[in-house]
Amino acid sequence: MRKGRIKIDRNRCKGCMLCIDACPKGEIKQGTAINKAGYNVVEFRNNGECNACMLCAISCPDAAIEVIEIIEDVKK
């Protein structure tokens, strides 16, 4: 399975939770941190289930999510 992780830009996130709704793996949750603008930003759970499908990033209106694919080395 493809592996990935996401990076959430805390300054851009508004905690609208559309990414939580879009993630099929439940890898994003509402966080406790509050950003400069007073929004309760979301957090990445990092349970190892993220497969870099980009659904969260596509559905994020604020372009706050960066998706990173992790490419593991295949040992021969």
């Binding site: 990935g4 830009d9 851009r12 870099a52 980009m54 990033a57 596509i58 372009a63 706050a64 999510i65 960066e66 998706v67 990173i68 694919e69 992790i70 490419i71 593991e72 080395d73």
Partner: peptide
């Protein structure tokens, strides 16, 4: 060592 590649970012 795993490599990382950014596949989606702010335009």
């Amino acid at each position: 060592m795993a490599k990382e590649r950014v596949i989606y970012k702010k335009p």
